[in-house]
């Protein structure tokens, strides 16, 4: 027993050290952003602590506009994927129907289809349809990206709800549609919120897709705006650049901490269950 405790102590020490290494880049971004202008990379700990960079950020370039664009695109996409994934997830979890297995396999296949291989044709199609530089194209693409994972998460949720509820509703004379929308969906609200938030974060963070589909300054998302800032600010206004990083990190970290369990479960189940 003593030996086991000693081993656990060592392992804990190792894991704590490892976590510090993992966290360092995040903490470093915060620290750089709190330096006074021009001193960001000179020391790890600021000699004078200041929030000035955050104030400057909100009048710098079009940063507030980029944030607004990110919210619109990510929320729009997440609404589409959550709504459609909830309906499909319910059918996959509860109903038996012809073609279910094939549809299931199709969703899995689409989940494995990387965004990278479709982005060039999407760009061409969008430019033929005059959809480049619009919210519409971003919302449609984010909506589609989120559906497969959304279906897996929602399916898990529906499977955890006892069937008795729908059976009771049916006895009370509710149609299956009424049972779904009035009995099952309200109980699944945490699942719907989790699916929405997880998809929101993935789109909020997405950097490559908007880089390809959006070139007009007014329509850029915060991630692409940050990429532009990197080119202009790195090496001379690192503190301002760091503040922009932190502002983009905060919602993602906050949402992750709220939905942690579902985030991880979605990741493992999406990859392993099939």
């Amino acid at each position: 027993m003593k030996q086991k405790n000693a081993i656990n102590l060592l392992i804990n020490a190792f894991l704590i050290a490892f976590c510090i290494v993992i966290l360092f880049p995040v903490v470093y971004a915060v620290l750089v952003s709190l330096h006074r202008p021009g001193y960001g990379l000179l020391s790890i700990i600021p000699d004078i602590w200041t929030l000035e960079n955050y104030q400057r950020l909100f009048i710098y370039g079009k940063f507030p506009r980029y944030i607004l664009n990110s919210i619109i695109n990510a929320a729009g996409g997440a609404i589409i994927s959550t709504a459609l994934a909830a309906l499909a997830g319910y059918a996959f979890a509860r109903l038996e129907f012809k073609g279910k297995r094939i549809m299931n396999a199709y969703v899995l296949g689409m989940m494995m289809l990387p965004g990278l291989v479709s982005i060039i044709p999407i760009y061409r199609i969008a430019s033929d349809l005059k959809l480049i530089n619009t919210y519409t194209i971003m919302i449609l693409v984010f909506g589609a990206y989120g559906i497969p994972l959304g279906i897996w998460i929602m399916k898990g949720f529906f499977e955890s709800i006892p069937r008795v509820l729908e059976e009771a509703a049916a006895i009370d004379g509710a149609t299956p549609v009424q049972a779904l929308f009035q009995v099952v969906m309200p109980i699944t609200l945490p699942g719907l919120i989790a699916t929405f938030l997880i998809n929101f974060v993935y789109s909020w963070n997405n950097f490559f897709t908007p880089l390809v589909l959006i070139s007009k300054t007014d329509m850029k998302m915060a991630t692409v705006g940050l990429f532009d800032f990197q080119h202009v600010l790195e090496g001379n206004q690192d503190e301002l650049l760091a503040a922009a990083c932190v502002v983009i990190m905060i919602p993602a970290i906050a949402i992750f901490l709220i939905t942690r369990e579902y985030f991880m479960r979605g990741m493992v189940e999406g990859a392993v269950k099939g």
């Binding site: 963070n205 950097f207 990429f227 650049l241 990190m249 992750f256």
Partner: peptide, 13 residues
């Protein structure tokens, strides 16, 4: 945590 951060914020750091 790093997984839930954007590639571009991580890239900058």
């Amino acid at each position: 945590l790093p997984w839930v951060l954007s590639e571009i914020t991580s890239g900058v750091v």
